[in-house]
């Protein structure tokens, strides 16, 4: 499909050298300690985690599935990509709580939120799952790259699977997370450039924005330009009930940890930010740029559809974005385009290699096998496990080449089945380790029942995914709610330490009152005597630790801004009515959020950073099973 000239090859090689060399350059920083190799020393300004969130989110198969949903559904297909919007509320809620926990991984967080044997088993459970899951994701995106290289160059599939991943492993192994974020930053810039360029070239080739619209109207399918082209309340391809379920999963999911499969990746980015404020802005900006990316893609793909509206086979039309790039770009720019495809691929591979190695090194090797290991030894284990993950992913990729789509459905089941426990663990003090573990166990059994056993015996019809979600949620709750209530709450000392450190949102009344009684936190002013400005602009540390109306303004506005950005960008590029207003509204909304929340985030960060060194020391004592020196 691609017509490469010498100039194209030179451009592609130049990009590759820049991206790999730029990342490798940081290897001296990475070898200093475990904290450097996996969190860049917890010192990154917000724009580095933000670019890493965006770059990791963008994999080689992402333009395929985004093209697939837009080609099949028109503009409303953008809502299928809106699951990323968990970052809208997540940035202001779960990111703040997780960053204050200082946990390297979600598995480590489990042992801070919960205590005793139950929490320890949860940590091992999640660590084993995540080591496996990262190998699975590496195999999945590796195979996608194999298919793209087969399409572009006619290479055998295994070449595209092995070669780019091995190049990525070279700098990820040497420079750890420093290499990952610096590489992601360079790769993110290249990827954005290519996505914007190819979309604009695509729209231009279809006769400009007016041409795209006229072609779509001419074939009588103007519903494709409507983001709310519902097919009914419950019937058809795009019912209202699907849309509402999607909004609940993604938007409300921002109150939890693990409600999206991306959480585990983003948690590492959150923890690498130098302050709570940087963690919040990093996740928010990463999510926003990802949705803007989808808006650009959708415009290009609608243009592709308007030129070739009759491709019946999904495997063919999913390559629409790649075809726009390879077939419409002039000599030289095709090389840049392939450089961008490499960038998109490398950034995803590097992140998952480092994340899988982190779970193995921190939660399995250091916690369970060698608690007394030196920093040098831990970095060495990080490098070896990076290499083992790489080799494992090759086997996995080749094994699942034909069934990837089905296994992605398994990811959905695991996300859907524990969506509610993942929120409850953050917002409800009474939820305990046994309840959460029961939620996970129940998910396996309930998924077998709902997806296969009951339909096979004709007891239950095969349900669409969005109804399956509610059934999985309800049946899971039948198991984990009684388990929670029939077992004891976590010990108050454990809850107090976690509460004072992270100040979680939600129903934490008994723990809050006990913390006040013991003098661990100051009593907050009673509501009735309180007089305060509508929007508080100056904060004491005690005031900033409470959840207040300023947080809720950010929480409510943020998803609205995300939706307006995503839909607005596509409409603006196609000169559709309302596009400009949606984008302007999103920019204004972003300004309001910043104005309202920034003083508070600065106060939270300033106060917390003063205590962070002591907290980190306690964290490192705990991971080595040592008693802590005082509180």
């Amino acid at each position: 499909m691609a017509n490469f000239t010498i100039l194209d090859v030179l451009w592609a090689v130049a990009f590759l050298l820049l991206m790999v060399g730029g990342a490798f350059f940081f290897y001296r920083l990475a070898r200093r300690s475990e904290s450097d190799f996996f969190l860049a020393g917890r010192g990154l300004p917000w724009w580095l985690p933000a670019s890493s969130v965006f770059s990791t989110h963008t994999a080689t198969d992402t333009p395929m599935w985004v093209t697939g949903v837009i080609y099949a559904n028109g503009l409303r297909g953008l809502w299928y990509t809106f699951f990323t919007a968990w970052t809208a509320i997540g940035a202001f809620v779960s990111a703040r709580i997780f960053r204050r926990s200082l946990a390297y991984t979600q598995a480590e967080w489990q042992t801070q939120r919960f205590g005793g044997l139950g929490a320890e088993m949860l940590r091992g459970w999640m660590a084993g799952w995540q080591v496996f899951m990262n190998m699975f994701i590496l195999g999945w995106v590796g195979i996608a790259m194999g298919k793209v290289c087969a399409l572009a160059f006619g290479w055998p599939i295994w070449v595209g699977l092995v070669l780019p991943s091995a190049i990525t492993a070279f700098y990820t192994l040497a420079a750890g997370y420093w290499g990952v974020v610096m590489g992601d930053f360079l790769q993110g810039i290249v990827a954005i450039f290519a996505i914007v360029l190819v979309s604009l070239v695509g729209v231009s080739a279809a006769g400009g924005p007016i041409g795209v619209t006229e072609r779509i109207v001419a074939i009588g399918e103007q519903w494709r330009l409507d983001a709310f082209a519902f097919t009914g309340w419950v019937d058809g391809d795009f019912p209202v009930v699907w849309w509402l379920t999607m909004l609940v999963i993604s938007v409300i999911g921002g109150f939890g940890m693990g409600t999206s499969i991306d959480w585990y990746v983003e948690a590492q980015r959150i923890q690498s930010a130098k302050t709570v404020r940087d963690a919040t802005y990093g996740l928010w900006a990463g999510g926003a740029v990802t949705l803007i990316r989808n808006g650009f893609w959708a415009a290009g793909i609608l243009a592709f559809f308007s030129m070739l509206p009759n491709i019946a086979d999904a495997a063919d039309y999913e390559l629409g974005w790649f075809r726009l790039g390879f077939e419409l770009l002039p000599t030289g720019l095709i090389g840049v385009f392939f450089g961008a495809i490499l960038a998109i691929h490398l950034s995803t591979i590097s992140s998952h290699l480092n994340l899988g190695a982190l779970y193995f090194t921190r939660d399995i090797y250091q916690r369970y096998l060698k608690p007394e290991a030196s920093e040098r030894r831990l970095v060495w284990v990080g490098r070896v496990s990076t290499f083992v993950l790489l080799i494992g992913s090759f086997f996995y990729g080749l094994m699942m080449e034909e069934i990837t789509r089905w296994l992605i459905f398994a990811l959905w089941l695991m996300m859907a089945g524990i969506w509610l426990p993942n929120i409850l663990q953050v917002v409800w003090w009474r939820f305990n380790a046994w309840g959460y573990l029961a939620g996970w166990m129940a998910n396996l059994g309930v998924s077998w029942l709902v997806v296969w056993v009951l339909p096979a015996f004709g007891v239950l019809p095969k349900l669409p995914d969005h109804l399956q979600f509610w059934l999985l949620l309800a049946l899971g709750a039948v198991v984990f709610v009684p388990v929670t209530l029939f077992t004891k709450p976590e010990k108050m000392d454990q809850l107090l330490r976690y509460y004072v450190m992270t100040r979680p949102i939600g129903w934490w009344g008994p723990v809050h009152r006990e913390a006040v009684r013991r003098g661990l936190i100051e009593k907050t002013a009673a509501k009735s005597t309180e007089s305060r400005p509508v929007i508080r602009r100056t904060w004491t540390p005690q005031q900033a630790d409470e959840w207040t109306r300023e947080d809720w303004i950010a929480v409510i506005l943020s998803p609205l801004v995300f939706a307006a950005l995503m839909i607005g960008v596509t409409k603006l590029l196609l000169l559709q009515p309302g596009g400009l207003w949606l984008v302007l509204g999103a920019v204004l909304g972003t300004g309001v959020i910043y104005w309202v929340i920034d003083p508070k985030l600065r106060a939270v960060s300033g106060e917390y950073e003063a205590q962070q060194a002591r907290y980190v020391e306690q964290l490192e004592q705990r991971v080595r099973w040592q008693k802590e020196g005082g509180r």
Binding site: L117, E120, G124, M126, V131, I364, W625
Partner: peptide, 15 residues
Amino acid sequence: YSFGLGLAWWSWHGP
């Protein structure tokens, strides 16, 4: 299906 859990139980060291 994590059943890491066994390793955690074995490791679980009156900490």
